[in-house]
Each structure stands twice: as structure tokens, then as C-alpha cells.
Simulated scan of single mutants.
Amino acid sequence: MTDGLPALIPGPLAAREAGVAPATIRKWVQLGRLKPAGRAGRAQLFRLEDVFAAERAVRGTARRVR
């Protein structure tokens, strides 16, 4: 049972859901395009909606460059 908070997922799962490589998630964090919402040990955890927002922003930028 959840308390209304969004689920947090690890980077590799977030990458799979967004259709990108895990290294892409790490790069987005380095570049400040995505911020981890928590940690589980050493693993960074993300909100899926944040990952999708970062993915949309990157794709939108790529379209404008062409």
C-alpha cells in the first residue's frame, strides 16, 4: 500500500523504462538534467516522471538543433 508518494526506482530500471542506456541516466545527473530523489545504499533512486521529463527535454533539444 502506498501513501500517495511516487515510487522511487533505481537508475538501471529508470533507463530501461525511458528507453535509454544506464550511462545516459548517469550523464543526465552529471549535467544537472536529472536529480536523484533518494538513495538506497550507494544506488541513486529516481521518480519515473522526472526521468520521462528529462528524456522529453533532451529529445526536444535534439529536434531543435537539426
Results as ranks from 00 to 15, higher is better:
residue 57 A to S: 13
residue 28 W to M: 05
residue 26 R to P: 07
residue 15 A to N: 00
residue 37 A to L: 02
residue 57 A to W: 01
residue 57 A to C: 04
residue 34 L to Q: 13
residue 6 P to S: 03
residue 12 P to I: 04
residue 63 R to D: 05
residue 37 A to F: 02
residue 2 T to F: 11
residue 29 V to S: 05
residue 22 P to S: 03
residue 16 R to I: 00
residue 35 K to R: 14
residue 11 G to E: 00
residue 63 R to A: 07
residue 66 R to P: 07
residue 23 A to E: 15
residue 10 P to C: 15
residue 44 Q to I: 05
residue 53 A to D: 13
residue 55 E to F: 14
residue 37 A to K: 02
residue 60 G to E: 02
residue 27 K to T: 06
residue 55 E to G: 08
residue 42 R to K: 12
residue 13 L to F: 13
residue 5 L to H: 13
residue 2 T to L: 08
residue 14 A to I: 11
residue 6 P to H: 01
residue 37 A to H: 02
residue 50 D to I: 01
residue 35 K to Y: 08
residue 20 V to E: 00
residue 40 A to M: 11
residue 38 G to N: 03
residue 24 T to W: 06
residue 29 V to I: 10
residue 66 R to V: 09
residue 20 V to L: 05
residue 34 L to K: 07
residue 61 T to R: 14
residue 35 K to M: 14
residue 13 L to E: 15
residue 23 A to D: 11
residue 56 R to D: 12
residue 21 A to M: 06
residue 12 P to E: 10
residue 61 T to A: 15
residue 5 L to Q: 15
residue 12 P to R: 07
residue 14 A to K: 05
residue 36 P to L: 02
residue 5 L to D: 14
residue 47 R to N: 08
residue 23 A to F: 08
residue 59 R to Y: 01
residue 12 P to S: 00
residue 61 T to G: 15
residue 53 A to L: 04
residue 42 R to F: 09
residue 49 E to P: 06
residue 59 R to F: 07
residue 8 L to Q: 08
residue 43 A to V: 09
residue 17 E to K: 15
residue 50 D to H: 06
residue 58 V to L: 12
residue 12 P to T: 01
residue 18 A to I: 01
residue 2 T to Y: 08
residue 23 A to T: 15
residue 32 G to S: 03
residue 36 P to G: 00
residue 64 R to P: 09
residue 2 T to V: 08
residue 11 G to F: 01
residue 19 G to F: 04
residue 54 A to L: 01
residue 14 A to Y: 06
residue 57 A to P: 05
residue 42 R to W: 07
residue 41 G to S: 13
residue 43 A to L: 05
